[in-house]
C-alpha cells in the first residue's frame, strides 16, 4: 500500500474553551465560597448533678449584670450604679449616654482601683508585660428575657466583645507596638491572660413582662 501523502487533519479544538467555560460556570454556581463568620462563644458544660446547679459564688463587686428585656432595652448593673439604655443607639454610646462598651472597659480594667469595681490582683505575666494589676475574677453576666429578639442580643454581645477587643488592641500596641492581629499566637495568648474574656450567658429569666 502506498503511504498516503495526505496530512491527518487537525482536530478542531476551538470549542474546547467553550466546554471548559461551561464547566467553570457550573462549579461557580454550585459551590459556595463564603466562609461563615460570627461571634465565637464557649458554652459551659452541662451541670452534672444537683450540687453543681448551685450558682458559683461571685463577689458583688466582681459582677456586672447585663440584662436585655423583652422590649430590647438594656440595663447594666454594677456596684457603681445602674445604667439603662432604651434602645440599641443609646447602648452603643450614641444617644448621649456612656455606652455599654465604655462601661465594660472601665469594669474590666478598674483604672482607679475603685472599691466598687472588681478587685485588682498583682500578677507577674512574664516579659514583656511584667508585673501588672488585672481583674482576674470579674464576671459579666449576660441575661435575657424569653422574648428578647436575637438581634438585640447579638448587638449586646457584639458590644461586649468589642470592649475586650479594644482593650487587647491597646495592650498589644503598648507592649509590642504592633496591632493584635499581627502578634504571634503565644503573644496573643499572653494578652488574653491580661484581659480574660469572662462572659457568662445565664439561662433566660422572665422579667420585664412578655
Amino acid at each position: 500500500m502506498a503511504k498516503s501523502k495526505k496530512k491527518v487533519p487537525s482536530l478542531n479544538s476551538s470549542s474546547m474553551a467553550d466546554i471548559s467555560f461551561l464547566l467553570l460556570i457550573f462549579f461557580l454556581v454550585t459551590s459556595s465560597m463564603d466562609t461563615d463568620s460570627g461571634l465565637a462563644r464557649k458554652l459551659p458544660p452541662p451541670p452534672q448533678d444537683e450540687q453543681n446547679l448551685q450558682e458559683m459564688k461571685v463577689q458583688q463587686r466582681n459582677l456586672m449584670v447585663v440584662l436585655v428585656n423583652s422590649q430590647n432595652q438594656t440595663m447594666v448593673k454594677t456596684q457603681l450604679g445602674d445604667e439603662w439604655y432604651a434602645n440599641v443607639t443609646q447602648m452603643v454610646g450614641k444617644g448621649g449616654k456612656v455606652g455599654l462598651k465604655d462601661k465594660v472597659k472601665e469594669f474590666v480594667t478598674n483604672p482607679n482601683n475603685s472599691e466598687q469595681l472588681p478587685e485588682l490582683t498583682e500578677e507577674d505575666l512574664g516579659p514583656p508585660i511584667g508585673t501588672v494589676m488585672r481583674t482576674a475574677d470579674h464576671v459579666i453576666s449576660l441575661q435575657n428575657d424569653a422574648t428578647t429578639s436575637y438581634k438585640a442580643y447579638i448587638a449586646v454581645q457584639n458590644e461586649l466583645v468589642k470592649a475586650y477587643n479594644e482593650l487587647r488592641q491597646d495592650a498589644a500596641k503598648k507592649y509590642y507596638s504592633k496591632s493584635y492581629d499581627e502578634l504571634l499566637p503565644e503573644e496573643q495568648e499572653l494578652i488574653n491572660t491580661l484581659y480574660p474574656q469572662r462572659i457568662s450567658e445565664a439561662e433566660p429569666k422572665n422579667f420585664g413582662g412578655n
Binding site: D36, S37, G38, L39, A40, R41, K42, L43, P44, P45, P46, V68, N144, D145, A146, T147, T148, S149, Y150, K151, Y153, I154, Q157, N158, E201, E203, P204
Partner: peptide, 28 residues
C-alpha cells in the same frame, strides 16, 4: 434570623450543652 425570640435560641443552647457541643458561633 434576627427576629427570632431568644427563648428558641436558649433552648437550642441548652440542647447543645447537653450534647457537649460547647464551641458555638453566633453567625453574623
Amino acid at each position: 434570623d434576627e427576629n427570632t425570640k431568644m427563648q428558641y435560641i436558649s433552648d437550642v443552647k441548652q440542647a447543645l450543652r447537653k450534647a457537649y457541643a460547647l464551641k458555638i458561633s453566633y453567625s453574623a
